[in-house]
Design a protein around this nucleic acid. Sequence first.
DNA 1: CGTCGGCTTGAGGGAAATCAAACGATGTGG
DNA 2: CCACATCGTTTGATTTCCCTCAAGCCGACG
Lengths: 249, 249
Amino acid sequence: MRFRSDFPLHRPELLDTLRRGDALLAGAMSKDCKRFNKGDEIIRTGEPCDTIYRLESGWVARTRLLDDGRRSIIAVFIPGELFGVKSFLLTEQPDSVQSLSNAAVETIQHDRLRELFRAEPDVALRLAFQLGEDERRLHNYVISLGRANAAERIAMMLLEVHGRLSRAGLAANDRYFCPMTQQDMADFVGLTLVHVNRVLRRLREDGLVTISRGTVQIHDIDRLHRLAQPVLDIFERSRPEFRDHASIC
Amino acid sequence: MRFRSDFPLHRPELLDTLRRGDALLAGAMSKDCKRFNKGDEIIRTGEPCDTIYRLESGWVARTRLLDDGRRSIIAVFIPGELFGVKSFLLTEQPDSVQSLSNAAVETIQHDRLRELFRAEPDVALRLAFQLGEDERRLHNYVISLGRANAAERIAMMLLEVHGRLSRAGLAANDRYFCPMTQQDMADFVGLTLVHVNRVLRRLREDGLVTISRGTVQIHDIDRLHRLAQPVLDIFERSRPEFRDHASIC
DNA sequence: CGTCGGCTTGAGGGAAATCAAACGATGTGG
DNA sequence: CCACATCGTTTGATTTCCCTCAAGCCGACG
């Protein structure tokens, strides 16, 4: 996965630096690669952690399991993204990161990263960029969880993931692979499996999206977009117009 | 507001550096101070922004107003905290920041901050720390919004704010000032004003908390804690034990 | 004294949860 | 190759938590 960002939102003057930082980081990490199976825990709750990860292939999710069995997916990561960056600041991880599919990750230890930092400030920018993007997405999910109904939440999730995958070159023709089960989606958008299923049926019947054995096919992106509209941020909103530019990078 | 962090969660070896970074940053910012009234917008949605803020006094909130009138509070900030840090990476702000009370903020421009960075790497750590803390809290709120019921959400909000204010030296005897209206709280925890009111009545009747004219008085922090327990992260959970250490700093 | 913002309470309705069961694909072992 | 277990999906019936609508209340302030 090469680094891409065709999002006009980011300060364009930083793009070259970002690319360079990403390449340097990827180079430094590539030696140390690990594979995980679906369901494996990559980072465990409560354990100390001195590693930062970069997802090479597959999907992983930051999850938290409550005592009474409730489960929550806080964020999902797709190939090319960094995760565990927060461990730079915290001694323990408050939640776990687990594979949603088979996945390959590259790693780097904190101390090595710190060296790299000093030599190459661009790497720091790449990390800051990841934190910033994570936060932006998190903000959107907070809005969604706090104020959107079930259909809006699901539409927004499907679109948000679609956008990211497109920019990473992992989606074409409004179709993409998504290894999340309906239970995963429910845990992500704060609903129950049963209700997610009902909403997905609705979206299918209305000709907006069909999801079948891990493949999401968006039939009517405009209507899906209109559905999610109220809870999209200013950047996501303008997406359809420059969807075509998404692969220039 | 001086910088404090008695949270055992943060890598202790960083604390001195953090303090230093905070002092340097505060020094650099103090020249340029602005005042706002309750309800004022400090940062406006969609506008470009080249400034980073530090809250000197009062409360502010990151909010988003949806087209159809729904409103959401994404995060609240208390004195000593930095906000608008993300503007370092984004050209436009996706949401607005508004005063929940009269507030005084210090500011610094991006370019000056960048200079400061180069001369003093500790300042970068202070900024990263703020981003990390913001993200940790955001994660907790995502859990809360996604999986907690009304009472749990409200209990967790009251405790979370209590913890932060205590650490900042702005709360004593489990009592603190909170300028949020019930509508603000509703927008923050994803409920309606009416329902927030009912839950608060319940908590009052059960002898857990009373809120009266902007003052929150926690009567039974242990039970409140037990109520919120399922949705507290590993750090917040251990709080009661070292509540007393909170003011050593 | 009236009005305005914020708080309080009631009645009724609706969106999503819960409980329960069946179905379909995939894989496995006898 | 079929019996069977497993995992994820689908659907129905019922319940509940929270929302909506509506109105009254209280304190602050001009």
